[in-house]
Design a protein around this nucleic acid. Structure first.
Length: 670
RNA sequence: GCCGCUUUAGCUCAGCUGGUAGAGCACAUCAUUCGUAAUGAUGGGGUCACAGGUUCGAGUCCUGUAAGCGGCACCA
């Protein structure tokens, strides 16, 4: 007999061979039906897997949403694999995990058949529903490694056969069998699974897309055909998720960028942004805002060359490691003779900077720096070019030419923690000004790295201490350490923003660097009169202006706060008799520093309201005969419930001007 | 870079099995002066991404190139 303790503190005795399902049945038929899996001594297990010892048991039902979703999604992946092999014999199965919103499974299509396409999805979905309808039992079996390998070799599953031999030797390996009869369908799987396919809601999933994916993530390996699905506990959750996807599509910065006339991209400069007047207003506001924040925080703004001799990039180490991403330019005047080649090919090479760090070191190195001057914080709106893999480009989020809010802090060892702490505080102020919440992660040493273990211990501790000193190493700030995620030369802190619809974006970062100061021989004179090596802290808060604006567009869904809105107000007339008054209103608002346009067109006010609402102008100021006579305006706010508010012109101007003040300049609220 | 898909007017899209291009919005002109999400009429506008090929004939079929989209890999 085993003693099974339940979450309510009660203990039940069960005979050997009993399963969590038996316990659930003993408690009541309702629970037996609702139970999906079991947490046994903290580990999620199949509900039909017998106890092996006395245990603490918690039954998992749909109410334990996180566990339940994970289980269900994993099961859907399993059902997908079974369905695909039913429909397309000869297809090999590989891996199929749960994801944040569903699952995927990677297949190697049968010889002669190409990858799956979207057109295959409806048929596969249908077959998946049949597998679910058959309510096949999912039975856990423990096999020997060689037996699994032999089985998969026999059935032509070379990927699975390869994989199983890399699992640790001697440990039992689990296979899951679907349905009854001899070997109907078997998959190598760690589990756990639900008791049967019928536990899945056939209306709670949808296959969403197909794509290629390298076997085990390595480009040297064959490309597999991946099928993605989204999966939920029930139909309602699925529907809600589809609505969220739709909402994200509506906020797509590429779409809003076109609608609001913010920027465009075109083939002739792919990966580089054409900023239109409206979009560049946002840029200028951000730039001005950042300058004020940087000035206040004791940085100095500099500007360094776009092009530098290739030899400088050799010294910095970029030529060796990063050249394939650099744009290289011959230092030569092109030939003007039409018959002759444009370039001789014999010129020295220069390169567009892919980052600002080496330039900042060169600025630091001018003259002799005393330890008393440190820290020196050099900031640049640094325009960089990187020849990114073409498949990586994406709207404003990943471009080939971008401007970083980049700074390098040159400091002494004993100043690192305080500088990093101050940076945490600065980042906090800035992100809050845009209404973001965020989490801070410490990316720790990767497998491939330079430097000794003691150096890494020290570098990691410095950043950790800084966050602790800032009081932010708490769950409230999403504090988390990520093993293996650091850069090869140093650990880094990362800021992950959460936007208005819950998506996360990694933007800010700070990392310590002892390599580049060494390579480029940056020194300062210490108290002892000797030369010392400064530490360099690389840091950014927006990441890049392009990407940050892209994130802001999606975060605000184009409805920018007044201080950032490209056009803050439109004065729209109802009748032409109000034209001159409208001009007067606009002039006064402009004099108060607001970005205002007039709309005097001979159109109905309905038309104007619609058009400017769609253009997401925050303030629509309507004037007709009445307003002109009374010296008032009718204010309609974008997204406001009340239709309009009558205001006296002078009051309105004062109110709007106050509202348009950037958050760092606004008087502190109580 | 890799896999798949896409590319027709400024935008969103339609053009079946090959027979020399169409809608709505936008734009222009005219009429309309109308109080909070589309006033009406008329009109202009396209080498169908680019380059080859098949064909009597290609937006439509084939090949290549480019860009875009969804992923993979990359993002020190």
């Amino acid at each position: 007999m085993f003693k099974i303790s339940l979450p309510d503190g009660s203990v039940r005795e069960v005979p050997e061979g009993s399963t969590p399902a038996d316990v659930a049945a003993a408690i009541g038929p309702g629970l037996a039906k609702a139970a999906l899996a079991a947490r046994v001594n903290g580990e999620v297990r199949d509900i039909t897997r017998p106890f092996e010892e006395d245990a603490e048991l918690a039954l998992i039902t749909a109410r334990d949403e996180k566990d339940a979703l994970e289980l269900v999604r994993h099961d859907f992946a399993h059902v997908l694999a079974e369905a695909v092999q039913n429909l397309y014999p000869g297809t090999q199965i590989t891996f199929g995990p749960a994801t944040d919103d569903g699952f995927y499974y990677d297949f190697a299509p049968a010889p002669g058949r190409g990858p799956f396409t979207e057109e295959d999805l409806p048929a596969i979905e249908e077959e998946m529903r049949r597998v679910i309808a058959r309510d096949e039992l999912l039975i856990r079996e423990v096999w020997q490694r060689e037996d699994v390998r032999d089985f998969f070799r026999r059935t032509g599953e070379t990927f699975k056969a390869e994989w199983v031999m890399e699992l640790p030797e001697g440990k039992p390996i689990t296979m899951y069998r679907s349905g009854q009869g001899d070997g109907k369908w078997l998959d190598l799987c760690r589990g756990p699974h639900l008791a049967s396919t019928g536990k899945l809601d056939p209306q709670a999933f949808k296959l969403t897309r197909v794509s290629g994916a390298y076997w085990r993530g390595d480009p040297a390996n064959p490309m597999l055909s991946r099928i993605y699905g989204t999966a939920w506990l029930n139909k309602k959750q699925l529907a809600e998720h589809l609505v969220r996807l739709e909402e994200a599509t509506k906020r797509d910065h590429r779409k809003i960028g076109r609608e609001m006339d913010l920027f465009h991209l075109q083939e002739e400069a792919h990966g580089s942004v054409f900023w239109h007047a409206h979009g560049f207003v946002i840029w200028r506001q951000l730039e001005a805002y950042m300058r004020r924040r940087i000035d206040e925080a004791g940085y100095e703004e500099i500007k360094t060359p776009q092009l530098m001799d290739a030899r400088q990039w050799e010294r910095s180490g970029h030529w060796g490691k990063y050249r394939e991403n650099m744009f290289v330019v011959p230092d030569e005047v092109p030939g003007t003779d039409e018959a002759a080649p444009v370039l001789s090919g014999g010129a020295d090479l220069m390169a567009l900077k892919p980052m600002n760090c080496p330039g900042h070191v060169l600025v630091f190195k001018q003259g002799i720096t005393s330890y008393k001057e440190l820290p020196i914080r050099l900031y640049e709106n640094g325009s960089c070019h990187r020849n990114e893999p073409h498949g990586a480009l994406h709207g404003l989020m990943r471009v080939r030419q971008f401007t970083q809010d980049d700074a390098h802090i040159f400091c002494r060892e004993d100043q690192i923690v305080e500088e990093a702490r101050a940076f945490c505080a600065l980042a906090d102020r800035i992100y809050k000004d845009f209404g973001f919440t965020y989490s801070i992660k410490l990316a720790l040493r990767p497998d491939n790295r330079f430097g000794s273990e003691t150096d890494w211990d020290k570098a990691e501790a410095e950043l950790r201490d800084a966050v602790v000193a800032a009081g932010m190493a708490t769950p409230e700030f999403g504090w988390e350490e990520l093993p293996g995620e650091g850069a090869f030369y140093a650990p880094k802190l990362e800021w992950h923003l959460t936007d208005a619809i819950g998506r996360t974006w990694q933007v800010g970062t700070i990392q310590s660097d002892r390599v580049l100061p060494e390579r480029l021989d940056a020194v300062y004179v210490g108290e002892d009169g000797q030369r010392h090596r400064p530490v360099m802290l690389h840091r950014a808060i927006f990441g890049s202006y392009e990407r940050f604006i892209g994130i802001l567009i999606e975060h605000y869904a184009g409805r920018f706060p007044l201080w950032l809105a490209p056009v803050q107000a439109i004065v729209a007339t109802i009748v032409s008799e109000a034209d001159s008054y409208a001009g007067e209103v606009a002039a006064k608002l402009r004099a108060a520093g607001l970005r205002v346009d007039t709309d005097l067109r001979n159109e109905k006010i309905n038309y104007k309201v619609r058009e400017h609402s769609l253009a997401k102008v925050p303030l629509l100021l309507v004037v007709g005969k009445r307003e002109a006579e009374e010296g008032t305006i009718a204010v309609r706010r974008l997204g406001s419930d009340e239709r309009q508010q009558m205001m006296r012109l002078d009051e309105a101007i004062a109110a709007f001007a106050a509202e348009a003040v950037p958050p760092d300049l606004a008087p502190k609220q109580g």
